[in-house]
Amino acid sequence: MLPTPCTSHVSFDTIYEPSEDSYLFLDTLASPSESAWLTQRFNATSSSPNQSTASPLVVELGTGSGVVLGFVAANSQVIFGRRDILPLGIDVNRNACIATRETANKAIKERQTDNESEANCQKTVYLSSVMADLGSSLRPGSVDVLMFNPPYVPSEDLPRLPSVTEQDVDESGMSRSAKFERDSYFLSLTYAGGRDGMETTDRLLEEIPGLLAPGRGVAYVLFCAQNRPQEVKERIRAWGDGWQAATVGNSGQQAGWEKLVIVRIWKETA
C-alpha cells in the first residue's frame, strides 16, 4: 500500500481531518484498475506529437488538508504513469490552501527522492493553492483531472460561502467563543451539503462539462448513499453527447448508512 501523506502540520480547527472518505479516494485512484485507466488516458510516451503528451492539469476542489492531492502528486508515476502532472488545489478556506501546499510539497519530497535506480528521476511540481468557489476561477476546458470530495452530508441548511475578506482578520484578538463559532462555521463547510447532501455537488456537476478538457478530461466525485448516486449517474448519462458515469470505488457495506462510492465522469468520444 502506498503511504498516506503526512498531515501532522495541519491544524484541524477549521480543516476536515482525513477520514474514511479521503482514504477511499486514495485507494480508488491508486487501485490497479483505475491507475491503468488513467495511465492509458494520459500516456506520456505517445509517439505522435499531439496533445496527449501535454502535461495534465490535475485539480482538486475542496482540498482541506491536502491529503488527496498530495497523494496524487507524490504518486503520480503509479497513478498516471508520468511525473509531469500539474497539481492545483482549490478551497474556500485560506488555512486549507496553505495546508495543502505544505502537504503536497512534503509528500512529493518524501516519495520522490533522488534515487538513481528509479527509472524516472523526474519530480512532480505542485503548482499552487487558490481560494475560490468550486471551479469558478478556472479557464473553461482546461482541467484534465478533477477531483471532488464534497460536503455530502444532508443538512437542513447549506452554510453560506465565506465572504472575500473575512479570512483576512487576525485570529489572535478573538474571544474563545468567537473563535469557536468561526471554527464551527468553517468545519460545517466541509461536510454540510444541504438538501440530500447534494446542493454543492449539484452546482459542481453543472460546471463539469465546461471545465473538463475536451478529449481527455475526467472527473472523480465522491457520494454517500443518501446522495442517491445511482440516480446521479443516470442524470449524467442523460447529458448525452457521450457523457459517461461509472462507480470505480466503494467503501463496502461495513460503513453502514454512510456507504461511500466514487464515481468517474468522462466523455466517450466517437
Binding site: V130, D133, S136, L161, S163, Q167
Partner: peptide, 18 residues
C-alpha cells in the same frame, strides 16, 4: 481585483458579484 496574499490568490467574490 483578486488579491494575492502569502502566495494564495483569493477568487472569492463579494456577494453582489456572485
Amino acid at each position: 481585483e483578486y488579491l494575492i496574499k502569502e502566495g494564495i490568490a483569493n477568487f472569492l467574490l463579494p456577494s453582489h458579484l456572485v
